[in-house]
Design a protein around this nucleic acid. Structure first.
Length: 512
DNA sequence: AAAAAAT
């Protein structure tokens, strides 16, 4: 916006505004009254000017007030609460080596492991010169080192709710001395059904404390949550809700869904701009893995990140991407919110997200902090409604870019579209996938979908989804459910009684 | 409609 007028003298008044007298000079971090130790850490990181949310939030949080914050990632929100939080704790920090002198004084809750790690990183960065220690608590990894760290004494705990409650049960953490609670991405927590966990944790905290709640949206549920946990909160809101960065160029490429893979490879290899790193969003976990493998086979360094991957795999994929070893990171919406990947120039939606709001979150990975960003979406005819919803939400028409050989097929009826186009291999793959889907429906659902005919034996290739645990019994035969495994029932079941679907068996085993 | 999170 005012990039050209951005003065080299930090104290210069921004005279772009209509009423210069009313506009204070752009604040620097020095103006915020932060401790020298914190300022030093900020400067080590190369920051001189706080973002708008930091300018607003830091004094309010330092004053000990409760906060309801509406800010998206990339606005400097994390430092906006980390710095004043450290400042408050540092005032009575204990430099004693005794663990007993380091009880948990601040609790920060985040919805995903990656987000928790990021917040923790920020805490570590800014607490460099103050005697405060922190730990990141999340699932999917060995719990013992976490217990050991908590035993040593940590003033600041950044955690995902599930594992934290695990620690509560094991009595490896005490909340008796908690002074500040931060709930980050509360809307996400709500979506993920974390609210019961959050309520349980809240009930264990001292009543006398400062609470900060951050959420990208303000639904009634969020407001209720805020009412139950905040006292006379100050409202901080920078970016307009669902605001989309102005520096992002949006594009959609019309294409038949069967050809999306080919188009993606085409874009990744032909478009000079996209010879760089790209984050690709897909709709399903399976789809993410499949696409990453496909890209690897095409000679493009790719990896997938999603919730069915082990924590180590997720960390590896993210590190690989950040280090540049991986060129294309294929992700589900695990990465849509909060994932902070610096200077990401391109985001591709391989599939349009189910809700328009998710589009905003996904493309929020690019065009950060005034940088130029590209949001490209592959747009199949059946996604028409989704695109309409997105355009309505972001209040702009997205440019259609038609690529010869792809766009024509997108306007043809989907069934006929890809035929005799020299994509036989893909066709085969597609057919195989269809067969797999059919198998899944048959073997796992037990009941045929209403009105759907059984495929003819020739078309029906009996094969179970390879991701599922191997069954050492015939799912079409009657069974009994025993602790430790399933067995074919020895006795003949009543012929009049319908069999329980296999899905019920698998579900039952999963819970045991 | 899909994904995320404790085992």
């Amino acid at each position: 916006m005012n990039a050209t007028t951005q003065s080299t003298t930090p104290s210069a008044v921004d005279d772009q505004d209509a009423s210069p007298a009313a506009v204070p000079p752009a604040p620097t971090f020095d103006d915020l009254g932060l401790l020298p130790e914190l300022l030093r850490a900020v400067k080590d990181n190369g920051y001189t000017h706080p973002t708008p949310i930091q300018t607003q939030a830091i004094p309010i949080i330092m004053a000990g007030k409760d906060v309801m914050g509406g800010a998206q990632t990339g606005t400097g929100k994390t430092a906006g609460f980390t710095l004043p939080l450290l400042q408050r704790l540092a005032r009575h920090a204990s430099s004693s080596p005794s663990p007993a002198r380091h009880p948990v004084r601040a609790l920060i809750l985040a919805p995903t492991r990656e987000l928790a790690m990021q917040v923790h990183e920020s805490v570590v960065t800014y607490s460099k010169y103050v005697p405060l220690r922190s730990v990141c608590i999340y699932g999917g990894v060995d719990i013992k080192p976490q217990i050991a760290e908590l035993r040593e004494g940590r003033e600041i705990v950044v955690a995902t709710p599930g594992r934290l409650l695990d620690h509560v049960q094991q009595k490896s953490v005490s909340f008796a001395a908690v002074e500040v609670l931060v709930l980050d991405e509360a809307d996400r927590m709500l979506d993920m059904g974390f609210i019961p966990d959050i309520k349980r944790i809240l009930a264990m905290l001292p009543k006398e404390r400062q609470s900060l709640l951050f959420s990208a949206t303000f639904s009634n549920e969020i407001k209720n949550l805020a009412d139950s946990m905040l006292k006379a909160p100050q409202l901080i809101e920078v970016a307009r809700r669902n605001a989309v960065s102005e520096t992002i160029t949006h594009r959609v490429y019309p294409v038949a869904s069967d050809l999306k893979r080919s188009l993606l490879v085409h874009l990744l290899t032909h478009d000079e701009e996209k010879a760089k790193q790209v984050l690709v969003f897909v709709g399903t976990k399976f789809g993410a893995s499949r696409l990453a493998v496909y890209l690897e086979r095409q000679g493009i360094a790719a990896d997938a990140i999603h919730g069915d991957k082990s924590q180590q795999q997720r960390t590896e994929a993210l590190e690989g991407f950040k280090s540049g070893r991986i060129r294309v990171l294929v992700a589900t919406d695990v990465a849509a919110r909060g994932l902070d990947i610096d200077d990401l120039p391109h985001v591709i939606n391989y599939e349009l997200p189910h809700t328009a709001e998710d589009y905003v979150h996904r493309i929020g990975r690019t065009g950060r902090a005034g940088k130029q960003g590209d949001a490209t979406s592959l747009f199949a005819p059946e996604e028409k409604q989704r695109l309409a919803d997105i355009e309505k939400l972001i209040k702009r028409q997205i440019e259609r870019v038609e690529i010869s050989g792809f766009a024509e097929l997108a306007s043809a009826p989907p069934e006929r579209a890809p035929s005799n186009r020299g994509h036989k291999r893909e066709h085969l793959e597609r057919a195989r996938e269809k067969a797999r889907e059919r198998d899944r429906a048959l073997t796992l659902d037990g009941n045929r979908p209403a009105g759907r005919e059984l495929p003819t034996p020739a078309a029906h290739v009996p094969r179970l989804d390879p991701r599922l645990p191997k069954l050492d019994f015939d799912p079409t035969k009657p069974y009994v459910n025993k602790p430790g495994g399933a067995e074919i029932a020895p006795e003949k079941p009543s012929p009049t009684r319908p069999q329980r679907p296999v899905a019920a068996l698998l579900g039952g085993l999963g819970k045991k």
